[in-house]
């Protein structure tokens, strides 16, 4: 199953290497990873998309919690959340398919952000599924290159992922 995990970490040098090393060293898989500073400049948020069974996910969450620089780990599975990723796609633009590309981009609420004699570069933002659908549809038109950001996510409504001082992290039983 695909899981999106948010990891709040100390905004310090080497932390990304610790997290990435944990995944590679233990054979966990990272589908995508995004990192940036949060509102609090001492804290960075990493959003990691991963795949694995229940048991593996449990280990991933526990192992992340075990890292000293990790402040909080949240598994979005248990939370109502919104998630987005962005993709840039460079598509072969010919006499015949230009219209089609524009139509698709329109339908998916994307934008053409760069144009050359032979290519259109399109930006699409959405959930993983939406992006997958778009790519499937434009593939036959001749995709030359694509770059994706990976997912980022946020809890719906007023709730937030916060650094709480009191609760011992990973201290629940099991």
């Amino acid at each position: 199953m695909r899981h999106i995990i948010s990891v709040l970490v100390e905004n310090e040098f080497g932390v990304l290497a610790r997290v990435a090393g944990l995944f590679s060293g233990r054979g966990f898989n990272i589908e995508s990873l995004c990192v940036a500073e949060t509102l609090d400049p001492t804290v960075s948020a990493m959003t990691i998309a991963t795949r694995g069974s229940e048991a593996i996910l449990e280990q991933i969450l526990k192992q992340l919690n075990k890292l000293i620089n990790v402040i909080k780990v949240v598994d979005f599975r248990d939370l109502e959340h919104v998630s987005r990723e962005m993709v840039l796609v460079k598509i072969n633009a010919t006499e015949r398919n230009r219209e089609e590309i524009l139509r698709m981009t329109e339908i998916f609420r994307g934008r053409v952000i760069d144009v050359s004699a032979k290519t259109y570069t399109v930006e699409i933002t959405g959930t993983e599924d939406k992006i997958k659908a778009f790519l499937t549809l434009v593939k036959p038109l001749g995709v030359k290159e694509l770059v994706r950001t990976g997912s980022i996510a946020m809890i719906r409504g007023e709730k937030m992922i916060q650094v709480s001082e009191k609760e011992p992290k990973g201290g629940t039983d099991g």
Binding site: A55, E58, Q59, K62, Q63, N65, K66, G170, G171, T172, D173, G174
Partner: peptide, 17 residues
Amino acid sequence: IDPTSISKNIRVDVPIV
């Protein structure tokens, strides 16, 4: 004392950290 040790290799029925 280490939560990662629990249910890592063998499923546990009553975990106590």
